[in-house]
């Protein structure tokens, strides 16, 4: 059975595929940087003749493929450097220098690509420093929609740079930690991929923050932030964690994603629960949404003053009702100090 060799060069979109018949496999298919190789790679980290593929039982066309190491470059299989030849099945992915090489039987069906795979592929393919800088600039512009946007508009270059600088530093440190873990697990740091995910998350965080402010300003209800902010945080956590873990651990089954998503929402749920407990406690300060945005951001119809004053009356009713409930609770709890008719001299000497 013929095989297909799929080549993905670092930083390039898409892949090149080469089909080799049983006869060719029986003779041996060479891969390397040299012109004489059957598959030529444009990668300076690959030897002129790095690898030969041979089918062991070419007569039947079945069985595994033998890898023979010919050059002195680094060939990795599942993150481990190959020191000697090996027998590999169809579907194996190799890394030669910076180039990915996949081996498939010609009957092999490529699994459908999920949006997540496309996103991850897009992000990880932006591995060259220049493209990272480009992506960073896009993220930077997104960040500018926050504080720095106005400063930039006012040509306050220094403040604008400083406004965007702190989250950038945070993203770099965060990515460094992930890169360290990836290095331990997969023998390659993939720092730039992590950095891209971190910067994209930052940009999303800014956009979500704006969305939350917009929602609060339009609803004029502090409860909006109480559910919307955790919801947005949950989405952001899922996005960032899934991508970081995928970069670190490689492709995952659906339940792998499920565990990460569950952990993210558990974290968010704990925070919501804590806030909920806190809001039931006595608060010396009023809780209201203080968000103010320019008038254009208000999409609803303003209340009239009489309507607002009606609402004020309802606030008094609710406060009085709250008092009654708390007094009844205190009496049930046996708190004598809340008894409205205590004899002030009772029990005095």
């Amino acid at each position: 059975m013929a095989i297909v060799v799929e080549i993905r060069s670092s930083g390039a979109h898409g892949a090149s595929r080469y089909r080799f018949s049983d006869d060719a496999l029986a003779r041996g298919v060479t891969i390397g940087r040299g012109y004489h190789c059957d598959v030529m790679l444009d990668d300076p980290h690959v030897a002129s003749e790095e690898l030969r593929l041979v089918r062991t039982d070419a007569a039947t066309g079945a069985g595994s493929i033998e890898l023979e190491l010919l050059g002195d470059g680094v060939v990795r299989l599942a993150g481990q450097q190959l020191r000697e030849g090996a027998s590999v099945p169809s579907g194996t992915q190799l890394k030669l220098g910076r180039t990915s090489v996949s081996l498939f039987d010609e009957t092999h069906t490529v699994p459908p690509t999920t949006p997540l795979d496309i996103l991850l592929e897009s992000l990880t393919s932006l591995a060259s420093p220049v493209r990272v800088l480009l992506a960073g600039a896009i993220v930077y512009l997104l960040l500018l929609s926050d504080e720095a946007a106005s400063q930039l508009a006012e040509r306050d270059w220094l403040d604008a740079a400083l406004s965007a600088f702190s989250p950038m530093v945070l993203a770099v440190l965060w990515s460094a930690v992930w890169a360290l873990v990836t290095r331990v697990l997969r023998h390659e740091a993939r720092f730039l991929a992590h950095l891209l995910v971190a910067l994209t998350s930052l940009a999303l965080s800014t956009i979500m923050g704006l969305a939350s402010e917009l929602a609060q300003f339009n609803s004029q209800d502090p409860a909006t932030a109480a559910w919307l902010d955790p919801f947005l945080l949950g989405l952001l956590l899922c996005f960032a964690l899934v991508l970081h873990v995928r970069i670190t651990a490689g492709p995952m089954r659906w339940y792998g994603h499920g565990v990460i998503v569950a952990l993210a929402w558990a974290f968010v749920g704990y925070g919501v629960l804590e806030d909920s407990n806190r809001s039931r406690d006595f608060q010396a300060w009023p809780e209201y949404s203080s968000v103010l945005l320019p008038p254009e951001a208000y999409l609803g119809t303003p209340q009239t003053l009489p309507e607002f004053l009606d609402g004020v009356g309802e606030s008094f009713d609710r406060a009085a009702e709250s008092r009654t409930i708390e007094l009844e609770k205190a009496i049930d709890d046996g708190d004598a100090s809340t008894n409205a008719n205590t004899d002030i001299n009772a029990g005095q000497r």
Partner: peptide, 23 residues
């Protein structure tokens, strides 16, 4: 008791928009 707040964007007779909070 805890504060109970009423807040709205309000347009007054002069067609000025205010964000009003009453607690």
């Amino acid at each position: 008791s805890n504060y109970d707040c009423q807040q709205s964007v309000v347009s007054d007779a002069d067609a000025t928009d205010w964000r009003m909070v009453f607690c």
